[in-house]
């Protein structure tokens, strides 16, 4: 699928470490828990998604594990994503 470059998503660590944080499209979430289960420092990402809040957690490593593992494309990094309104 040929896409405009601006639509390319980039969830790699390097581009988000500075100020990026995880945001969500809550209506796609089914509360399965894959994100929370895979967060290396135990942030309850799923609970943030339920409340439609960004993961602005001081300890978030912005490692991207939750973003990459969510089976339903709910999570994105705010800084690099043009689709999503800033929330939280």
């Amino acid at each position: 699928m040929a896409l405009l470059n601006i639509f390319k998503r980039d969830s790699s660590k390097h581009t988000v470490l500075a100020t990026g944080h995880v945001i969500s499209e809550s209506s796609r979430c089914v509360q399965c828990g894959v994100c929370s289960y895979n967060c290396p420092i135990g942030i309850d990402v799923r609970a943030h998604v339920w409340r439609d809040e960004a993961v602005k957690h001081s300890e978030c490593l912005t490692c991207g594990e939750c973003v990459a593992r969510c089976p339903r494309g709910v999570l994105r990094f705010a800084q690099t994503d043009l689709f999503v309104r800033s929330k939280g």
Partner: peptide, 21 residues
């Protein structure tokens, strides 16, 4: 608990205790 999550429990992506939000 997350009923859609049951599928990920079956594939082994999640333990069942992780299904409880």
């Amino acid at each position: 608990y997350s009923r859609p999550g049951l599928a990920y429990y079956l594939t082994g992506e999640l333990p069942d205790k992780a299904l409880f939000p």
